[in-house]
Design a protein around this nucleic acid. Sequence first.
DNA 1: CCTCAATGTGGAACCGGTTACACCTTTAAA
DNA 2: TTTAAAGGTGTAACCGGTTCCACATTGAGG
Lengths: 329, 329
Amino acid sequence: MATIRDVAKHAGVSVATVSRVINETGYVHEDTRKKVETAIKELHYTPNEVARSLYKRKSRLIGLLLPDITNPFFPELARGVEDEMQENDFRIIFGNSDENMKKEKEYIQTFVQNNVVGVIASTNHPDTDTYRKMNIPVVFLDRTADNRPSVFADGREGGRIAAHEMIARGSRQITVMQGPKHIRPAQDRYQGAVDVLSKEGIPFNVIMTSSFSFTEAGTWAKELFEQHPYTDGVIASNDIVATAVLHEALRLGKKVPEDVQIIGFDDIPLSSLLTPSLTTIRQPAYDMGRAAAQLLMQLIENENIDHKTIQMPVTFTERDTTRKVDQHG
Amino acid sequence: MATIRDVAKHAGVSVATVSRVINETGYVHEDTRKKVETAIKELHYTPNEVARSLYKRKSRLIGLLLPDITNPFFPELARGVEDEMQENDFRIIFGNSDENMKKEKEYIQTFVQNNVVGVIASTNHPDTDTYRKMNIPVVFLDRTADNRPSVFADGREGGRIAAHEMIARGSRQITVMQGPKHIRPAQDRYQGAVDVLSKEGIPFNVIMTSSFSFTEAGTWAKELFEQHPYTDGVIASNDIVATAVLHEALRLGKKVPEDVQIIGFDDIPLSSLLTPSLTTIRQPAYDMGRAAAQLLMQLIENENIDHKTIQMPVTFTERDTTRKVDQHG
DNA sequence: CCTCAATGTGGAACCGGTTACACCTTTAAA
DNA sequence: TTTAAAGGTGTAACCGGTTCCACATTGAGG
């Protein structure tokens, strides 16, 4: 690889001048610039970002930490972040945390060691030293963090909507699936649903789950119908388990939505392709990713506008695992 | 952030000694080592990877370029790569190429500028200067590249299997969906299926598709049944379009697999949760990712074992969108 | 006691950029 | 014609590590 000194020599100028040409800073005579540009072309020179980053103590890298890219909700987020960053010439160092604090800490540490200028993280523990002691901006994505920059959807409200719609559509033996205890958004949804169900005085059952994995989703679904065979409405903790519940319901010969209604959460791409297609509480994942990226870039450029949180709306996405309401309400 | 010089001063030694302690190279007296380690702890020192990378011209970073993380096949690959790399203390710079050569080139360039020690790429154009002129190892993933290190599944064989099984299960009005022209594996699958169908003298129709996107998949599915309403077997180009075809078939009141059989490709996690669950040609995506990462690390450590290609087996994964065969064969 | 290898440590160059500063030339205003 | 500001360029220090090399000390073997 050619270095800036090679270019300088080839063009018959100093490295400072070459640097000025590359960065369009300071004064450079038109003729000189031409010479340098020619030299750059001839030597196929591209600046070494590492050297640059070392001196400026700033790179064009940001860190992205997500729980598990294999969960179909996160690729949407990731893609949103990536597209926005790519358009602004930032690159992404990526890691899966598995909702595991040790892994999180390791990743954040290596991000910092690599001079990232900012971090986007999906964590349940924004209030640990890992994040509090950082001196680069962090945006929390899909997770709340009081008074810290974050982009998230209103899980609680989503849970409430799900419960309301379930009731409005006539289910009276509702089962709420409680997502993993350590995952905040899952608990918010659960709480939202429970709030409404309690207030309305509708009895309900709870199935506890401890992960969002595909393999286990089937297990929770089986458990659900074994323990509550007469349930006529399931509020699932996300679309993966909703899909598993739908699958199991149909396997048991139940009619959906006639016998059981199902409402999921997230609106992952495949939800609309299921049969019957899945009614769900939609989160605008891709847009959330983009918003997080935009916010992070603002923070990078402009330190003062801190503690800005962006709450994205969740929307009831009515499809075919719920019955129609006769009257609007 | 503390620097190595801060540590040296704090411990009363030279930077060279601190460096020796960190890297466990050369001779360091036990007592000295203790002092340095204490200083490191007290100052919360972590070495700056950027400075390290600059001098050694080697980082602990690798580049990963995939077409689109939003396509559920790729997160599995990515996760395999990531897990293997994480265990070996490498980090990943990630990019989506959208099968677009310009984007690919941009990413590869920035990867190199950031001193990555290797690249894993999923590209249809391994034989361009972009890749040929690189002086760091590249592993092609999910794509073939004659005589270059690569990890891929036998798409052609997969297509053949799909056709054989379809025939064995009695479909005689088969429709083959041809994936996007510019995506190599899609064409391999298509060719494999066509080879068998032609040789066996079974007439078939072709539906051309130009993307793997969820939104468009529905369109191809509709088109398929409009143009070939009496088709009794669909070989889809991947599980996404297979899912769309299944959805459309059911919507039209067709019985699956009685009226139409469907075989997908990839075996994405949701395939087994569809109803009926999707018969498909499975690629071991996660393992492919891990294998690619392992191969890349071998190449990084040991330049000579070049042009090694790993072909992973595809397996017919029989589920419920195909009928049972009375007799094995 | 001498010699040489093994052990232990520090100074300084180096990686490839950026930029402060010094210095020279040109241009325009007084 | 003088002078200050603007334009143009190079030298060298600097970012934070790693490593070569020089040099000192210790200990074992002859």
